[in-house]
């Protein structure tokens, strides 16, 4: 019906109507707010919030599997407490050995979710949309890194909390138990923070080099597995050949180093399998921090150069 009402032909002058949406006079919150928004959105995305159910499957299944043994231990805490009283020291998960036992699930978490965080922006060429906002390239990279670190940290801490509750319930006097458990459990916070930041920086730095999620994922698994296997092999060969430097190679392993660093936080003896104890425990902590710094640097370097 619109055709009949068109009068443009007879009116040579034009008009632009101010409908009120052309100006934004509100406050502009700038760079930090932009980075914070990206961080929050990215964190929600990793857990699949605001996305279809299928996007929630991978993170929740993997985090669920990771927390599962701790949850079982919590569920049967009364039974376990009974058997401990009877002198049967059950082979239980503790704060210090949990990641060592189940860390493979966290590798899978990174393999599944890290490419989701960074690959699509390159694939669909939307990076210019970010970089032309208040946010810079480094802000983008660091916000993404912070979000994956947070997501990993949450996944890592859920079983810690379950263990804590379980241990408190096992005690006869809950309040007294909290008093004794709390100091024992507190090192899990810095330990898991280190694990989360280290794994997240490796995962994102490597993922950001391919716009295709499949290749990022393969590259990530290959890195985590090979960097465990290869130093051990070279160390083995070096023992025969008398290569004295070969034992330092353990510091390049991503997961074994983290496990050893966790041991340091809990004051346990080293569990770096397949390697001698020639290196002090603090060497592993330093190695993990150095690795996190290195991969964060690689990530920032990548986003300095990536075409946008």
């Amino acid at each position: 019906m619109s055709t009949a009402n068109r009068v443009t032909a007879s009116s040579p002058t034009g008009n632009i109507y101010d409908l009120g949406y052309r100006h934004y006079d509100g406050k502009r919150r700038g760079r930090w707010y932009a980075a914070w928004s990206l961080y929050v959105d990215s964190l929600r995305g990793i857990w699949g919030f605001g996305r279809p159910m299928s996007a929630k499957a991978a993170p929740f299944i993997l985090a669920g599997l990771y927390a599962f043994p701790a949850a079982i231990q919590l569920a049967f805490s009364s039974v376990i407490a009974q058997s401990v009283k009877e002198g049967n020291a059950a082979n239980l998960f503790e704060y210090g050995n949990y990641f060592t036992g189940l860390g493979i699930l966290m590798i899978l978490f990174c393999v599944a979710q890290a490419p989701e965080v960074v690959c699509r922006d390159q694939r669909y060429q939307v990076l210019p949309l970010y970089f032309t906002r208040a946010m810079g390239r480094s802000d983008y990279a660091l916000a993404r890194l912070a979000s994956l670190s947070t997501a990993l940290f949450l996944a890592l801490m859920v079983p810690m909390f379950a263990l804590f509750v379980g241990d408190v319930l096992m005690g006869a006097d809950a309040f007294a138990a909290i008093g004794t458990e709390l100091p024992k459990s507190l090192p899990s916070i810095p330990a898991n923070l280190l694990v989360a930041v280290s794994m997240a920086s490796i995962s994102l730095a490597l993922s950001s080099y391919s716009p295709r999620r499949a290749y990022s994922a393969i590259g990530l698994v290959a890195y985590f597995l090979l960097m465990e296997a290869v130093p051990a092999i070279i160390y083995g060969v070096g023992q025969h050949a008398g290569w004295t430097w070969a034992d330092k190679l353990v510091l390049t392993t991503p997961i074994t180093s983290l496990q050893a660093a966790t041991d340091w936080f809990f004051g346990r003896s080293l569990t770096a399998r397949g390697f001698p104890d020639t290196l002090g425990p603090d060497a592993y902590v330093l190695a993990c921090i150095a690795s996190a710094a290195l991969f964060t640097g690689i990530l920032l370097f990548r986003y300095r150069r990536v075409a946008a």
Partner: peptide, 29 residues
């Protein structure tokens, strides 16, 4: 590359190579 490292270390050993490299790297990864 690992085979080359084995040779550089002067080690020619079917068993070591089979478990160390073939099994843990080629077959598993």
């Amino acid at each position: 590359l690992l085979a080359v490292i084995f040779r550089l270390a002067g080690q020619v050993d079917v068993k070591e190579y089979s478990t160390g490299v073939f099994d843990t790297v080629s077959l598993t990864i």
